[in-house]
Write a protein that binds this DNA or RNA. Sequence first.
DNA 1: GAAAAGAACCAAAGCGCTTTGGAAGACTCT
DNA 2: AGAGTCTTCCAAAGCGCTTTGGTTCTTTTC
Lengths: 340, 340
Amino acid sequence: MNLKQLSHMLALSQTTVSRALNGYPEVNEETRRRVIDAAKRHGYRPNPSARRLATGKTGMIGYVLPTGTTVDIDPHFVEFLSGLGDYARSHELDLVLSPADADDQETTYRRIVANRQVDAVYISSPRPADRRVALVSTLGIPFIVHGRSEGLDFDYPYTDIDNEGAFHEAARLLVQLGHRRLALINGDDRETFAIHRERGVRRALAASGLALGEGHVCSLAMTEENGYRAARRLLERSDAPTAIACSSLIMALGVVRAARDLGLTIPGDLSLIAHDDVFPWLKPENFSVPLSTTRSPIRLAGARVAERLAARISGLEEGARGEVWPVDLVVRGSVAGARA
Amino acid sequence: MNLKQLSHMLALSQTTVSRALNGYPEVNEETRRRVIDAAKRHGYRPNPSARRLATGKTGMIGYVLPTGTTVDIDPHFVEFLSGLGDYARSHELDLVLSPADADDQETTYRRIVANRQVDAVYISSPRPADRRVALVSTLGIPFIVHGRSEGLDFDYPYTDIDNEGAFHEAARLLVQLGHRRLALINGDDRETFAIHRERGVRRALAASGLALGEGHVCSLAMTEENGYRAARRLLERSDAPTAIACSSLIMALGVVRAARDLGLTIPGDLSLIAHDDVFPWLKPENFSVPLSTTRSPIRLAGARVAERLAARISGLEEGARGEVWPVDLVVRGSVAGARA
DNA sequence: GAAAAGAACCAAAGCGCTTTGGAAGACTCT
DNA sequence: AGAGTCTTCCAAAGCGCTTTGGTTCTTTTC
């Protein structure tokens, strides 16, 4: 059932039927009712391919997915996707993942914009002076950055959490508990979120005349194994930290294992705080010693990004407003006062 | 730059240019070279919206993503996606995720087929008599099932791993080591993979005149917490198992924690084997006691599914061939002979 | 009561591609 | 040389929608 058939059936022109269906004003309400009714009764659904050829609108939002045999997709992605998908569903949007060579995403961005494959895109895991942000911005497609870049000479719309504030608070608490030697087991510090977290820790330490010791900050892919290795390396030093801030729950698993292997107790010998993006399948309160966390459900961020993308597509949102969400510090058993 | 401009520039008809570009035979090789060259030089890329309107081909594969505030996307998804994406990239395919109400995916399947939004779809986490498989089959869109359904009265193409065989082998090993009371901590047993695994365990036990004790099989969402709870419940019974087979590495984390809480050692008091889909961020060899696993990289499955979808789209594959991959049993420190 | 304004509808022109159904010229065959 | 066969190209008809630029009435305005 296409428009032609439907309009013929109603003895109306395609123009009028199309307008009736799309809510244009220049059509009699009585007629509109008839049209809508007939459309529903015959299950008419406008062909999206035809519509997008005519309008350029696709009803899809895009994401360039870096791939490659050596490239691992972050498990956070799935939670973010849950939120994004949930919102997208309620607004009849689909998400298209365009796989790209991790080292050349630019080609893919250009393609999806040139081809008008999506109405908007989002960018995740931004880095300082992120070229993708600059590119997408000049290409003129609506977009939202999940996270922030830095050192770009223009503004852009983003939704981020207060990574610096979160880790500042976490470190401040540890310092107040008497810890003097902190360490940070961070994610990839080419990404802005990691830079912000380190900055937060340093700022908190500096406020008490302290600093992150040489070699007391690690930057690694967020795997259990890397958490273990980093913790081991740190804890076997002569100036081993008495407290660790950790960028992910998965890494924290490794930290806990390292402490156990070394016969250290948490929080007796080591205080630990990790960032929790809130996974349904791994909860900080269920760690052998309940884990203190800086907490921010990444699923909510996904929903928010979808919401803003939808708003930008429909022209309800414009400009370059960035928003930064506060992060909760949730104190559980894994922190304690430093040994005298 | 569109076809009209390009053909005008070359003083050729749109027909010829189109054919030259799409490799049709009825065009002079010299002309073809000219056309291809000019297209490249001017960066001509056919507009996909127009092409899909004309041909019905979209260059996209679809996946219906169940969503909802209470619906959690499996973290396995991300690994599967890595493989799928990697293959899709090399074949210029995009993946479109259509979010759907978890309780009504049918509407979404019908929509994406009726609208010709994708060239093929894949279905994951199938259940016995899965309605999606039946639906997609009657809708007549190319598809591959990742996993298997059961009790359907028709054949369909699928790629699955030998879950039954894997857990059969695992259980057989445990029995050979002298274990008499096994337990199975399984995933959601409404899904076929879980049913197959249970079947494998039962078959291995039956071969030695044993059986899964009443209450010795749990079926839960695969989270750390559920692994812990299930293990605790099992290990506190008077007829506590001396060996556990577990459907996921994440649940196994919980099992290990439960054992520790109860003062049980692995493998001294409890042998443990889990299934490993191979995550980059959590490895069985890094468990406090290296974990024995049935191992099958889900990323490979993703790539294979993409490959078969591409083949079906281009007509290279047809029919209903199902393929079942063997699973490796990797023995590490977490299994030992049963106490006398 | 003529002119202007408004309401409701329509024919047809895109959107940019593929594909059908030729057509013109060059070649082969008898 | 005339008929048939290739080879190579083209004009035009879709694909199914939206949108431009009307037209035809009916209603309002002075």
